[in-house]
């Protein structure tokens, strides 16, 4: 049955279009493709004859750059793991009943949350020794390890806030019900509160991971040989040809986009899913 009507409210609801692949429509893919194609083309046009084309140069260097990028991912995953572990403890400290624990956890969280990541990275780089002497054994403390520690500081502070926020967001009735059933505070936290918080913490946590991954390039400033450092070195060894800049850095951009974008989409999807349940 069809109605003839001008009233928008009377019109049938527009069917939800099925979500395109990763939320990308053809025009988006086109734009990305154009960036990927035009960059090298412009570069090619700028290239003086007689030299290898920029694309060919990039292909030569790509395996090394990819290795560098994988190193970025290793830094990001390690810093996330370390930061999450310490941050979770700090977050629980923030809801402790012991005032001293609560206040000091709060202060540490605020201190590292309101500091620029780069400064924290420098802080870790130059404050930590290059090797540790334990019982006569010299354990080297390489730059990349310092970078992981440096980057895990802001992660720790942000995770701490995520944990605190999630615990706070639960209705107080959950605590009261648990109390009235004679659960201890620890039991309440582990059996009732935290399991419910995991869902709430996942989207912001993944968001944080995405930001961290993109921030790993900061490690190049302190000399860790991750993808940005390697790109710079590759460009230098090609004699600093200006037409190579766009394809090389474009390639790095693309790597990060391909890695981080699906995470962002997944986060959105999770948020939608949990929004319906709660």
């Amino acid at each position: 049955m069809k109605y003839e009507t001008d009233l928008p409210v009377m019109l049938p609801l527009e069917r939800h279009q099925s979500e395109p692949f990763l939320g990308l429509k053809s025009k988006h893919i086109l734009t990305v493709a154009l960036i990927a194609i035009i960059g090298p083309c412009v570069a090619f046009a700028q290239a003086p004859s007689g030299q290898e084309s920029p694309l060919a140069v990039l292909v030569n260097w790509a395996p090394l750059l990819l290795k560098g990028f994988i190193f970025n991912l290793i830094i990001s995953i390690s810093a996330m793991a370390f930061g999450t572990a310490i941050g979770a403890i700090l977050g629980l400290g923030q809801i402790s009943l012991i005032a001293a624990t609560r206040h000091s956890s709060w202060f540490v969280t605020q201190f590292f949350r309101n500091a620029p990541w780069l400064v924290l990275l420098f802080f870790a780089m130059f404050l930590l020794p290059f090797e540790i002497n334990i019982l006569g054994f010299k354990i080297p403390f390489p730059d990349w390890l310092k970078a992981i520690l440096g980057l895990s500081l802001p992660v720790m502070a942000n995770v701490s806030e995520i944990v605190r926020g999630a615990v706070r967001s639960l209705p107080s009735g959950q605590w009261e019900a648990a109390e009235s059933l004679a659960y201890t505070r620890m039991q309440t936290l582990w059996l009732i509160i935290l399991p419910q918080c995991v869902k709430r913490m996942l989207p912001p946590w993944m968001n944080l991971y995405s930001i961290l991954t993109m921030a790993t390039v900061l490690a190049s400033i302190v000399g860790v040989s991750e993808v940005m450092t390697l790109t710079g070195q590759a460009l230098a060894s090609e004699g600093g040809r200006p037409e190579l800049l766009a394809p090389f850095y474009g390639f790095v951009l693309l790597l990060f986009f391909i890695y981080c974008y699906p995470i962002a989409r997944f986060t959105v999807w999770l948020e939608k899913k949990y929004a319906v349940i709660n």
């Binding site: 209705p171 009735g173 959950q174 009261e176 019900a177 648990a178 109390e179 009235s180 059933l181 004679a182 201890t184 009732i192 419910q196």
Partner: peptide, 19 residues
Amino acid sequence: KLELRKKVGMVFQQYNLFP
């Protein structure tokens, strides 16, 4: 308090079941 609450049950206006 834990011993006390084992003896005294409570039911709330908002049910407060663990979801």
